[in-house]
Design a binder for these strands. Structure first.
Lengths: 323, 323
DNA sequence: GTGAAAGCGCTAACAT
DNA sequence: ATGTTAGCGCTTTCAC
């Protein structure tokens, strides 16, 4: 790999001049500029970003750390982040933790050691990772899930309100025993959605905790059918809702007749599934955009009180909950 | 941020010793080791990976460049890559090009300047990007889509065979006018699947080219209905198949009665959709694993002839094609 | 076993 | 407008 000195020698100028031409931040004689660019082309020179980053002690990379790349919710979010990032001159690298706190910690450490310009994280709950992030001076935005309450910029949807609306909806259309399948304790979305359900329910709550994944939803639904047989269920994320549907199909439980179902997070093709799934939809793409803007702002002005932005969720009533 | 010299001073040793302790590649006196680790803890020292990478002129990061993060096919593939990468001591950063050759080129350039240890790419067709990759000495593996025929390690499925089987299947169950919706010319999967279709078809081919995305599939299906009205269609990827289904639903065309449908690439929840979708399924996760192994091997021994691995595809016959 | 010193490739003062 | 020079933080000879 040729270095900037090879280019300088080849163009018969100093390395500083090559640097100036390539970074375009100072005026350079047109003739020299041409010589330099010619040398760059001829040698196939590509600047070493590692050296540049070391020298400048900053990068133009954002780390986006999400917990499940298989969940369409996160991928839509990432699109929103990417679009804003690109506009602001940053590139996005994605890190998938697979809901594994240890992997999360690994990626956070990597992002910090790599001197990333900023981090957007939807935490799967690693306390270590959170601590490292808080101690570092690297700008951080929590997205979807809270990191350390109020300590960093945060964007999320109105989880409690959405869950409340979903549960009320089931009760209003006539279901009597409404259960809830939520996510792991300690993950803020799981806890808030559970709270929304609890507030809405008038009878004794029927609750299962699972892992926000499809198999978890399947198992939780099976357990509900075996033990407490509700007549409707509010499932606190999209993948678990799929799992629940699959379980109900396997056991020949009629939807919405024998069991009403509402999910949280839309799923792509929710309308193609039969019966189509009623969901609490989130402005996923927008969530990403807002987080990215917060991060860009925070990088510009690192001091200042962190803000928390709550976006509204919206019920999409479809067949699975209409009695 | 404390540097290695701060730690050295605090522990009253030299920076070299701190480095040795932290990298554990040489024997250091236990007492000193303890002093160093204590200092590290007390200062909250985190090594600067940028400086380390510059000095070593290598990293432990892989760039995985895919063309559509919203496509479950790619995300499953990434899982396979990640699992192998982690085992081999590498971290994976994902770059999403959104089928945009320009973005692809940007990410390739970034990966090379960042001195990434290796690149796994499913190209959206940027010739520039391909050229940069070939000219660099960075190890590259092409996954799913060919990059530069035979010039780099490549893993893909038997696209032609899968497409042939899908088309034959439609003919065998009794459809007479079988059309094909494939992807952009120049993208290897699109071209190979089209060839498989052409080989299987006995009548005049009826073909549409779209962009491998949902809206593209919708539009292509609409165009087919308007102009040539086939009685069955082979759609060359999952998202376009979804689009086609949605178009058929919108126009009240009965599946499989009035129109048989087979897709390429499985979709999650293909079985929940009504009618369920017949697909040519790929060993997606395995595709990722194999690519990752090839990359790890190539990094160990950069010379040697590149290999091409073809994995089999498998028909999953469901309702959408049973007459 | 440990320390001194050089240098990875680049940019940004500073000097001219 | 251009060149000289120092140094970003780390690892790795090379001496001892």
């Amino acid at each position: 790999m040729p270095t900037i000195y090879d280019v300088a020698r080849h163009a018969e100028v100093s390395a500083a001049t090559v640097s100036r031409v390539l970074n375009g931040n100072q005026t350079v004689d047109p003739a020299m500029t041409a010589r330099v660019l010619k040398a760059v082309r001829e040698l196939g020179y590509r600047p070493n970003a590692v050296a540049r980053n070391l020298r400048r002690s900053r990068t133009t990379l954002w780390a986006v750390i999400i917990s499940d790349i298989g969940n369409p919710f996160f991928t839509a979010m990432v699109r929103g982040i990417e679009d804003v990032a690109q506009q602001a001159g940053y590139s996005v690298v994605l890190c998938n933790t697979d809901e594994d706190p240890e992997k999360e910690n690994t990626y956070v450490t990597a992002a910090l050691s790599q001197q990333m310009a900023g981090v957007i994280i939807s935490s799967s709950g690693s306390a270590k990772a959170a601590k490292h992030l808080m101690e570092s001076s690297t700008p951080v935005v929590a997205i979807d899930r809270e990191l350390a309450k109020g300590a960093v910029d945060t964007v999320m949807v109105d989880n409690e309100g959405g869950a409340y609306a979903a549960t009320r909806h089931l009760i209003d259309v006539g279901y009597r025993r409404v259960a809830c399948v939520t996510g792991p304790a300690g993950v803020s979305t799981a806890d808030r959605r559970l709270r929304g359900y609890t507030k809405a329910i008038e009878t004794a709550p029927i609750v299962r905790r699972a892992d926000f994944r499809e198999q978890g939803g399947f198992d939780a639904m099976a357990s509900l059918l075996d033990d407490e047989r509700p007549d409707a269920v509010f499932v606190a994320n999209n993948l678990m809702a799929i799992g629940a549907l699959r379980c109900l199909a396997a056991r020949d439980v009629g939807i919405p007749g024998e069991m009403g179902v509402v999910g949280f997070d839309d799923i792509p093709w929710a309308d193609l599934i039969r019966p189509s799934l009623t969901t609490v939809a989130q402005p996923t793409y927008e969530l990403g955009r807002v987080a990215a803007r917060l991060l860009a702002d925070r990088i510009e002005s690192p001091s200042g009180k962190p803000s928390t932005i709550i976006l509204p969720a919206e019920m999409h009533v479809r067949q699975s909950s209409s009695r």
